[in-house]
Simulated assay, not measured.
Amino acid sequence: MITFIYWTDFSGSDIDLFFSVCHPYLTPQIVNKQMKYKNKEAALSYLLGRLLLWYGTIDLLGSSSPLTLCFTNHEKPYFKEGPFFNISHSGNYVACAINSKYNIGMDLEIIKPICYTDFQDYFTIPEWDYIVDSASPTQTFYKLWTRKEAVIKADGKGLGIPLNSFSTLEDTLYFNSQHFLFEELDFSSEYMGHLVVMSESDFSSNSTEHISHFIPLEELLIKLKTFPFLLSDLN
């Protein structure tokens, strides 16, 4: 089963111009939520995540009917009648993953200097040994960290799950009666990202892969002017 990932890079973009061009085509709910962000980059990342989700659902499902976006008790968004999806952003990159069969989680992080020792309590002992003994502890930290974030995003309970309660050293994980399969994302050497596919059954008889599509901001705007906005009932 294929996960489709739509992503973009807004570095060098005129954020104010982008907002002014696309706002007339958006639902009021999306505009209102986007405008609550005090930081322009954060506001743009939120908006691009929604636009990539909209773009991806049109690309995969067509434009015949709107999809209603709902939220779980833990504030995880989902479609009642549509595919599974997950959105992540970091730095100038924003990505949206869509899978029609499996629940998924994704985390993307820009790799920057970090005092990774401050995060020791979030890892199991074998994981921490693996990080500090590696040739590049910072790189390895981001590898395991994005795996952990992807797991809790797929599960949907967020930080209600202690990050040190499961290990991400293997490419598969069985946790909380669910099977997880990790796939590393390869957008740029400056970023680390992981996708996780979640299922009640193991993946031994099911092959999974992901296909990435880079969508320039100009293409998002062109499609936005061509198709009606289909993600309704946002809050």
Rank of each mutant, 00 (worst) to 15 (best):
T172H: 13
L44F: 01
E218G: 08
S45P: 01
L144Y: 07
V196P: 01
N86H: 08
P28D: 10
L53N: 01
N235W: 09
F84H: 15
V31Q: 05
C70N: 10
T168I: 11
S177P: 03
A135I: 11
V197S: 11
F18H: 00
V132I: 15
K223S: 06
L231R: 14
S212P: 12
I15D: 05
G56K: 06
N176F: 13
D133Q: 10
L108Q: 07
L61W: 14
Y25I: 14
A95L: 09
S134W: 09
K225Q: 07
F229H: 04
F4K: 10
E41Q: 06
P162Q: 03
N99Q: 07
F85D: 06
I15P: 11
V21H: 01
L173K: 09
C70R: 09
I58A: 05
F10C: 00
N176W: 13
L185W: 08
C22K: 01
L108E: 05
N39S: 02
K153N: 10
K148Q: 09
G62Q: 06
T72D: 05
L17P: 13
H23K: 06
K76R: 14
N32V: 12
S177L: 14
L44K: 03
V132W: 14
P66W: 03
H194K: 08
F123Y: 14
E149W: 04
L234N: 14
K38D: 04
V94C: 01
S11P: 00
Q178I: 09
L67Y: 08
S212R: 12
K36G: 05
S232H: 15
A95C: 08
N206R: 15
G12V: 05
I215F: 03
Y130E: 15
D16L: 08
L231P: 12
Q120M: 09
E41M: 01
I211Y: 15
Y6G: 00
S204Y: 06
R147A: 08
W145Y: 12
T146E: 03
P126Y: 12
G82S: 04
P216D: 02
K101L: 12
N176Y: 15
S177V: 09
Y25E: 13
I125T: 15
K80I: 01
L51V: 02
A150G: 01
H210I: 05
F203V: 09
T72E: 07
V132P: 15
